[in-house]
Simulated scan of single mutants.
Amino acid sequence: MAKIFQVSVRGALTRVVEPLARRLLRAGVSPNAVTVTGTAGCLVGALGFGARGQLVPAALIVTFFALTDLLDGTMARLRGRSSRFGAFLDSSMDRVADGAVFGAVTYLLATRGDHAGVAAALLSLVLGQLVSYVKARAEGLGMTCNVGIAERTERLIIVGVGGLFTGLGVGWALPAALWLLAALSLITVGQRIAHVYRQAQRSELGADA
């Protein structure tokens, strides 16, 4: 059920993003430029607003620019080709943006004395990086790893929604979102490891046959 919901949400977002992707390509904008712009926007939202406690604008800015993670990939697909450097740049910029977002959240919660929230933010950061690493390592070994309940876009949207509600006065929303995110990230790591394990087992059985 969760996977069906995830696919339907991503499908709806892609239908919204695709017309914009086509317009940007016609205007001569490259996917790499969109990648860098998205990272810069996340940095502004996280460090310029989120770390200072201005959670409503921070959440709106970060959530908006998080969608560029879908936009640049859609542009590359519509263009009919993707570059190895583009994939490298996208992964590198994602790590920069994630570090800024969760670093800002950790700093803010620490200044407010919310130790449980700080723990959740740090867990979300570490597990989010592990989610990405497992996929990158699997692909480096020639296997696929496009599975998991909480990929990067979903993770940023969850923390963005939590930040938005906390900024609107629901103080527990951000810590709750972070604990939910930590749990979903841990599940995603497990899903990806299991997926890679099954591929490796099939490969070894095929080699022995």
Rank of each mutant, 00 (worst) to 15 (best):
R79N: 15
I187N: 01
T14Q: 07
Y197V: 05
R155V: 05
G86S: 10
R81Y: 15
G128T: 10
A136K: 04
Q199S: 10
L67C: 14
G48K: 01
L24N: 05
A138E: 02
G45R: 02
G128F: 15
S8W: 11
G171I: 04
I158E: 03
L164T: 09
P31N: 07
S8P: 00
I187T: 09
L108M: 08
L181D: 09
L24C: 08
L70M: 13
A27C: 09
I4M: 11
G148C: 14
D94N: 06
S92M: 14
V9E: 02
G86P: 08
G73A: 11
S83H: 14
K3A: 09
L24Y: 00
T74N: 09
V159N: 07
A33F: 14
A177V: 13
G73L: 06
S91I: 08
F102G: 07
V101D: 03
V96P: 07
I61C: 04
L25D: 05
P175L: 11
G11T: 00
R112D: 07
R198L: 12
V196D: 01
V105I: 15
Q6A: 15
F49I: 12
V118Q: 00
Y107Q: 09
T68Y: 14
V159K: 03
L127N: 12
M93A: 10
S8L: 10
C42T: 13
A177N: 13
V56T: 11
L180T: 14
R155C: 02
A183Q: 06
P175N: 10
G11H: 01
L174K: 06
Y107V: 09
A207G: 06
R192I: 15
I158V: 12
M143N: 04
Y107I: 10
L125K: 01
G50L: 15
A12I: 08
A87L: 10
F65T: 06
S30F: 13
R84V: 12
R10A: 05
